[in-house]
Design a protein around this nucleic acid. Structure first.
Length: 438
DNA sequence: TCTGGGGTCCTAGGACCC
DNA sequence: TCTGGGGTCCTAGGACCC
């Protein structure tokens, strides 16, 4: 009998990713409520099962959580992105060994295209994959496998929620699909956010199945083309191509809240300089250049008692670039235009857009100076190499230096410009030997 | 006192052109 | 000069994701 092959997608999702990363090196915290905080220890961005169970909400401000759960002994960590990035890379490497095509979707999720695996027992394969990741990296992952990415997402939620699935839920028949979407709340479906959930409620749609009962034209009218895509996917028709999730960034943004409010122009300039340097690095990493540079600054919108001001402006570069100096210079020029004295600034950022491949740069004849361009290229790649080999920020621009003092009177490095009071050690970093010459 | 950061896509509306 | 209509491009804002 000829078997009709149906393409399957897998979704591998780390369970409480950041908390699980921390617990790999702190097994004593297993079974206890643990949270990881955003930059500047602002709010909760990852929670262990136990933390969710006692009611700690995602995005809850840390100071409120501390106050509210004083008697619960919750362990909190500042975010340690070096550690999480490293753990994520290890997991992605295992996935690439095991699956034909891997598409990393975020730091803690990846889609797999399982084309060509139709002759093996997929459910068993998924269970073994989850076990391998747990054994090799220490990260618990839940795997969902189905005909579309939206259904694979739903399957992974089942794998996460019900131990009976043994960490892998496989929706391989239409009966299973229907059974799954009949109990799956519409607001938990990938692509249905808060606003659309309210609309769904209004229309009396409670489960993913309820939604699939509506007509295509009705969905188009009320939820636009993105709603129609989700509707198709829930019915089992694959319509979100995998490569649509894997392209070079079309915009790159580096922005932060400052640990304190800042009035001084020079201090803001230091932060903006650092953001600009990061943006240029991210551009070079994906071999792109940007044609448009935007800078924005804002006061603290939660401080109603203080005067508010926010502004952002853009500059088109004569020649699209990824050179640190070019982007920093453009940012300074914008900052001079948007900065106003007399306000306490809390947040700022740099965005680069109009991104294209670095080998396809459109040069502006009036401006283009080949020799200068070449020198700039040599300088930035030399700095990149030094920083890659000797550690991040080994060589920096003068304008990146944060001119502050720490409590013990030492000069602060600019990297201290984000508060991470509860950060764990960088466990996965190789130990550095420092050789001192006499 | 303390409230994250980094992306994508879609739509509506305005400007402009023919 | 007047008026109408259709197409395209750009931008801001909104919705979504992790």
């Amino acid at each position: 009998m000829r078997r009709l092959f149906v393409k399957m997608y897998g979704l591998v999702d780390c369970d409480n990713c950041f908390v699980s990363c921390e617990r790999v090196f702190r097994p004593d915290l297993e079974g206890h409520p643990v949270v990881v905080l955003s930059n500047n220890d602002g709010c909760v961005i990852s929670r262990s099962r136990e933390a969710k169970d006692i009611g700690i909400r995602m995005g809850m401000p840390y100071y409120q959580m501390r106050e509210h759960y004083r008697d619960k002994e919750v362990t909190a960590f500042s975010s340690n992105y070096e550690l999480y990035g490293n753990m994520s890379n290890r997991i992605m490497n295992i996935l690439r060994e095991e699956a034909p095509i891997v598409m990393q979707y975020s730091i803690d999720e990846a889609f797999l295209d399982l084309n060509g695996m139709e002759n093996i027992n997929i459910k068993e394969w998924g269970e073994n994959l989850s076990l391998k990741i747990l054994k090799c990296v220490g990260m618990p992952v839940s795997i969902g496998i189905a005909k579309t990415k939206t259904l694979a997402k739903i399957a992974s939620e089942f794998a996460k929620k019900y131990p009976g699935y043994n960490k892998c839920c496989y929706i391989d028949t239409d009966e299973k699909r229907e059974k799954a979407i009949k109990v799956f709340p519409i607001d938990d479906v990938w692509g249905i956010g808060r606003k659309n959930s309210v609309k769904m409620e209004y229309f009396g749609i409670h489960t993913a199945y309820d939604f699939t009962l509506k007509s295509k034209s009705w969905v188009l009218k009320n939820f636009s083309i993105t709603g129609v895509r989700t509707w198709f996917e829930l019915k089992g028709y694959d319509c979100i191509p995998l490569d649509s999730l894997d392209s070079k960034r079309k915009s790159i943004c580096t922005s932060r809240s400052f640990p304190n409010m800042i009035e001084n122009f020079d201090d803001i300039r230091t932060h903006i300089s650092n953001f600009a340097v990061r943006c240029a690095e991210k551009l070079r990493l994906q071999h792109s250049v940007a044609g448009l540079v935007t800078v924005f600054i804002d006061t603290n919108h939660l401080r109603y008692d203080l005067p508010q001001y926010g502004n952002g402006m853009s500059i088109t570069l004569h020649t699209a670039s990824n050179a640190t100096q070019t982007i920093v210079k453009a940012c300074f020029s914008i900052l001079c235009d948007i900065y106003k004295e007399g306000y306490k600034y809390k947040r700022g950022g740099v965005i680069v857009t109009d991104i294209c491949d670095e080998c396809a740069v459109q040069t502006d004849f009036a401006d283009y100076d080949a020799d200068n361009h070449r020198k700039m290229h040599v300088l930035t790649s030399t700095i990149d190499n030094i920083n890659r080999q000797n550690g991040k920020d080994m060589v920096v621009l003068g304008s990146q230096q944060y001119k502050g003092k720490s409590n013990d009177g030492k000069n602060l490095k600019f990297s201290n410009a984000v508060k991470r009071a509860l950060k764990s050690p960088n466990y996965t970093e190789p130990y550095k030997f420092i050789v001192k010459s006499k």
